[in-house]
Each structure stands twice: as C-alpha cells, then as structure tokens.
Design a protein around this nucleic acid. Sequence first.
DNA 1: GCCAACCAAGCAAGCGCTAGGTTAGGATCG
DNA 2: CGATCCTAACCTAGCGCTTGCTTGGTTGGC
Lengths: 200, 200
Amino acid sequence: MTARDRDRRAEILAGAAALFAEKGVATTTVRELADAAGILSGSLYHHFESKDHIVEEIVISYVDDLRRGYDRALAEEQEPRARLVNLIRVSLEVAERHHGATEIYLNELQSLRSLPRYGTIRRARSAMRKAWIATIESGIQAGAFRSDLDPQVVYRLIREAVWRSVRWYRPTAAYPVERFASDCASIFLDGLTTPGPRVS
Amino acid sequence: MTARDRDRRAEILAGAAALFAEKGVATTTVRELADAAGILSGSLYHHFESKDHIVEEIVISYVDDLRRGYDRALAEEQEPRARLVNLIRVSLEVAERHHGATEIYLNELQSLRSLPRYGTIRRARSAMRKAWIATIESGIQAGAFRSDLDPQVVYRLIREAVWRSVRWYRPTAAYPVERFASDCASIFLDGLTTPGPRVS
DNA sequence: GCCAACCAAGCAAGCGCTAGGTTAGGATCG
DNA sequence: CGATCCTAACCTAGCGCTTGCTTGGTTGGC
C-alpha cells in the first residue's frame, strides 16, 4: 500500500463519513460516495470490498480512538469529579476529530449489528460504558457524588447530552471545546440552581 | 369515515410507527408495513396516499400532542423550577404515549424536511423551543437559575438527555415516569455533587 | 346491488455490485 | 536508453434485485 493509496482511501472515507452522517447510511448510495471522491461507483470497489466495509472502517476507527482516550483520561486522574470532567472533555474532543463517525454511531448503532466486525464495536462500547459507570460509582463511594441516584441513569443522561451535542455544537474561538466541556460538567455536577448558602 | 375505518388506520399507523422507530423510515418497506397490518402492500394505498404521508401523520400527531402539553404545563405553573420539572415530566409522558414517533422525530428530523407538511412540524418545534428557553431565561432573571450559562446550551443539553431516554427508559411499577422525571430534574437542577455546607 | 376494503400482478426507477476493458507511470531488460 | 511489460487506478456497461406505487379485478357486509 503506497502513501498515495492511503491518501485516496482516507479521502474516500472522509467524504463517506460526512455523507453518511448527513443523510444516513441506508439512504446514501455508492454513486454518491463515488461522486464525492470524483470517481465512478464501480471504482470504489478497487479500494473497498463493499459499502458495509466502508461504514465499518469509519465507525471502528472512531470507537477505537474514543476508547483509548478514555483509558488515558482515567489513568492520569483519580479524583471522581476530575475524572468525570475528563471523560466529558475526551468525548467532545474525539467527537470533534470524528464528527461524521460520531453521528453515524449515535443514529445507526442498531443497523451496525449486522456488520461482520460488529464484535469489535460492541467490545469498545462495553469498555466505554464501564469507564463511565466505574467513575460514577467510585464517586458515590467516596462521598463526592449523591447516593440517591441510579448510576446507570446518571450515566445515560450525561452520555446522551454530551454525545448528541455534535448535532448543534462546533468549537469556535469564542466558545472552545475546553469551556464547553467544563460547562457541561458544571451543569451535571453543580446543577442549574443558583449556588446559595446551604446547610447539610 | 366509519369507526372501523378509523380503527384500521390507527392500527396501521401504530405498526408503522413501531417499525419506523426500530429500523428507520428509509429501510422500512411498504411491504413490511402491510405485513404488520396483515394486508398486502398495495392495499395500504386505499388508506394512505403514500409512505411519506404515513410518516407525516405519525410525527405531526406527536408534535401536536407535545406542544399542547407544554402549553398546559406552563399555564398551570409560574415558578421557574416547577416549570422546568413540568416540561421534563410532560416530555416523558408524551414520549411514552408516542414512543415510536419520538424516536422517528429524534433520529430523522433531517429527512422530515422534504415532507409536504413540514411547516407544521417546524412551527411546533419552534414553539416548543420557545417554551424551554423562556422558562430558563425567566429563571435566570428571577435569580433562581445560574446566570453564567448560555440558556441555549442548557436547553439543548436537557432536551437531548430527556428525549433520548426513550431509547433506554420504559416506565415500570418500580420506577414510574413521575420518579424518573423528578430524578432528571434533580440532576439538572441540583447536580450530581453531594449537597454539603456551602457559603455563597 | 353497492361500495369500502382488499388482493394479484406488475411497472419504472434506483439500488449494490460485477466483469471486462482502458490508461498512465514505474520497473525491467536487452 | 528506448522498448516492453506490469500493475494500480479507473471507466463502461449492465445484471439481478428491491423499492414505492399503480391498475384492474374480487369480495363480503350492509
């Protein structure tokens, strides 16, 4: 595989990810993928086995990146609150690098089950879930987080709110990803209510 | 239109909503819709003009119901915190009544734009957005909610977290929708951090 | 006997994918 | 160093299938 070949593949994948994210995988045709790459549909099959293999490559590269980010985030931090902030920040950063893949993963996880290498996706998904749940549970045990809420419920609410932000949030100079991440973390950790004098 | 006819239509719509939610609109065929209703695909066209009209009817009945619920929720309550709780509760209750439609609306809002009566959907969507934003902004002005967060960001985070819960939450006797709604509200209003002595 | 509800059959368009031919550019060799 | 060959990259053309939808005919309850 030459450098030129790798570039071409990456180019096709980038265009495909954007199209899949915009119109959905099923409704995007191989002819549209080829158009985006400036070739004819048949020529796609010189680079990829099938349309499904293109989808697969996009999604797996995303979940692998995300899983590695979570591992690093948890390794360099022990304190529950800081860990949660890190998980949110990494989720947003990786979503930024894999913008199209994130939408595909969010919208069409169901249909990905039929892919040949779905096991890889499932394992990464499970590992990421564990990272969130472990962080929340250890926070509860350490007394930092409330114990009256189901960790599963908390995890799912945070995950959906954060990941789905790819639909409406894009980093800008005025509102960079670091500040958005800390805002998200602050809402979930401190709440929307005005901080005032409290007696426990 | 006889009562029997209305029943048959409702039956077809219910089956279609479930299928569309499960597999996506584009990947669900009219033959599958007909199978679910126990008839042949051609017979669908006695009840509906087209596949698109079926989708449209499902989604519009959902957003109309939701918009009416929001109007009622805001009319019977003035206090910002209670208003926010009401909006969350209504969203979950209507999502329960229109389970399939909620998923369609969440997953495929983009593709709904090509529908003939999309204007109706857009107007309802805009009215609902206003209900959320007005509630959050009035809470900030009344001093009940923090003023350091963008109301748009708060709105979108809450909306996504709450609406997407149709993917994983179903009401049970052990965890009814009222308690789930109050848990959601509590996370967003009070935060995950242990309530402790605070000095303003 | 009428008409709402359904069936039987199939059409045109679009789908993913394939087979075989063309081209350009680097490697090989006398 | 020019001729020859090879191969990656692409094109041309179209196959087999599924799709949403249509048409004309059938049926059974009022």
